[in-house]
Design a protein around this nucleic acid. Structure first.
Lengths: 343, 343
DNA sequence: TTGAAAGCGGTACCAC
DNA sequence: GTGGTACCGCTTTCAA
């Protein structure tokens, strides 16, 4: 059997001090002679000692009933989506930069959030970020009851005591409509992600409302599942009929790229000559020279930074009220929307 | 102050049994009357009790000195790279499907692995996956000493006691060379990621060796940093001179796409008429209609599944010897390499 | 099969 | 400032 790990007791013995002293040496606020601390830390480092984070969070279970594990749980759906993968990456680095660890939980369907959260709570996580899903009323209450702050990213905070940071999907849809209207289009189609999805619904609603206002209703609605292939397939349905739309708004860039590639390569259409295209998210590949996709940008860096800040603030001070933040999307004009030559 | 969390003691009291009984109810192997277990579980569920995973791993610190946390640490560089993001996604779902949790640690530079590992080890993780980086001899020994199995994904296991799963970069480079040679090219260039990177080096070596064998050495070498933009910039250098290469091999698909977009859009070149292009990885977007990038595929699903299996086996049985697995890359012919009309 | 009790590795409070 | 000690919530002996 390999040598077991070194404990504070081992260090204490080697340093000729009490075990409590070793513990104090690692607590910045503890009252301990500077000299002694240095001595202990030196020996500890020599021995390769590292405080056991598990034991620490175990014992610091305070009288208020909260353990502090230093771990933030992150629950995510659709992790294979480049947009989400990127989001996780950002959450990870930001949390880490502030000294928190991230326990990642992947779920296949938004309904699994409650289970996932239960599973994570066994680790006494200090807080949780939920990406693109909402939790049940019941679970929300549970979290509030034991003081675990929840951050809903990309979704409305449905229940009390929960924070959220999200893009203004409705306004984004409106903006997309305006861009297309301004370009003089009249046969405008919409391609959504999953139809029952809040995000898709809001984007469509904003889009359709604005179009209706202008007396130019959506001529065709197609739905996919946010993947490239589903966008590609939607393009097939969009452009196979005789009365083709002359403009398309996709609820995500990935699908928009699917439409773009399909239309240009599979069907020989030109963009924006044959139709204009607007996406949502502004993922990096939207800007690639061959795409030049006009899109509604989500300022994800800022959004994630804010989400992390809010969460951390609440983890450190549970008394803090939850925050609800909505960011406006900004349209990034590129080459997939036609320009009107004259005003 | 919110209500504190429910402990096994609370459940015991409510069920009129001892605390040990509650513990046993949750241990499949424990000897407890079936009736009693059912009774306890029922009450526990009613109360919303969940065993505290922290306390559990604390107390199960066995005489062999190993705690079992149920957590696997994953250390990753370049998490923003779509290829890596995808890899994490797969690791996450596979580990989770087998009942393990994943603590994710992002590092900016491969040298930070040791620190990251130290940080993770404080949580008494049961095993660790390291993506595209290697650890120091010293750290490798530490892991072996306290029985933490290490899985190096995408890298050679440099030290003893460490497992690895990786693609055969050298052979992949050779294959790329053959594809280009077979297409009758003679002015062949290479675009690598970071020049000091083992992966880039091996791919180039295989590529260059095979080319040299054929008496057709690499005419130009360019390096980037695995990003799209760096591929795009490399294209600028590649095609600005008078004696342009007639074929390019990129050490990653992302860079290859950068070259492709730049060449086609920025410089008006056609592929494969003006030059052939081969990438590496076979990421999803390589197959998009507008790209049709010929690439050396990494069978990442199988590779990751194997990596997870090996790691889990070793976590469950520390006596097991580490495994070293290398997968061959397979060339996926698409449209970016010209076809010779006749043999 | 059961309950009592001894830890697991720390933290924090207690007198000194 | 310091060492001694009572926990944290659970698992696992040990007797009964």
């Amino acid at each position: 059997m390999p040598k077991i790990s070194i404990t504070s007791y081992d260090v204490a013995q080697a340093a000729g001090v009490s075990q409590s002293a070793v513990s104090r040496a690692y607590s910045p606020t503890a009252s301990i002679a500077d000299k002694k601390r240095k001595h202990i830390l030196k020996i500890a480092n020599q021995m390769g000692y590292r405080p056991n984070a598990i034991a620490r969070s175990m014992s610091s279970a305070r009288s208020d009933g909260r353990q502090r594990s230093g771990i933030v749980g992150v629950i995510v759906t659709r992790i294979q989506d480049p947009f989400f993968a990127n989001t996780i990456a950002l959450f990870s680095s930001l949390l880490q930069a502030k000294g928190w660890h991230m326990l990642l939980f992947t779920i296949d369907s938004p309904e699994d959030v409650d289970d996932a959260l239960h599973s994570l709570m066994q680790f006494k996580i200090d807080g949780v970020v939920i990406l693109s899903a909402i939790l049940s009323e019941h679970m929300a209450r549970t979290c509030q009851a034991n003081g675990t702050p929840v951050m809903l990213y990309n979704r409305n905070a449905s229940a009390a005591g929960i924070s959220s940071v999200q893009i203004d999907n409705y306004a984004g849809g409106q903006t997309a409509a305006e861009v297309l209207l301004n370009a003089g289009h009249s046969r405008i189609a919409f391609v959504g992600g999953i139809e029952t999805d809040k995000t898709t619904q809001e984007r469509e609603r904003g889009f359709a409302d604005r179009l209706a206002e202008a007396g130019c209703p959506v001529v065709q609605r197609e739905f996919g599942d946010y993947t490239f292939d589903s966008g590609r397939e939607a393009a097939g349905r969009l452009f196979s009929g005789r009365d083709r739309p002359d403009a398309v708004f996709c609820a995500s860039d990935v699908m928009a790229l699917g439409v773009l590639h399909a239309a240009m390569q599979d069907m020989g259409l030109r963009v924006p000559e044959d139709f204009s295209l607007v996406g949502f998210d502004d993922i990096p590949s939207a800007a690639w020279p061959g795409h030049q996709l006009t899109s509604i940008r989500q300022p994800i860096r800022r959004m994630i930074r804010e989400a992390v800040d809010i969460l951390i603030a609440r983890m450190e001070n549970p008394e803090l009220a939850p925050a609800l933040v909505t960011y406006p999307g900004v349209v990034i004009m590129r080459g997939t929307v036609r320009m009107l030559s004259a005003d």
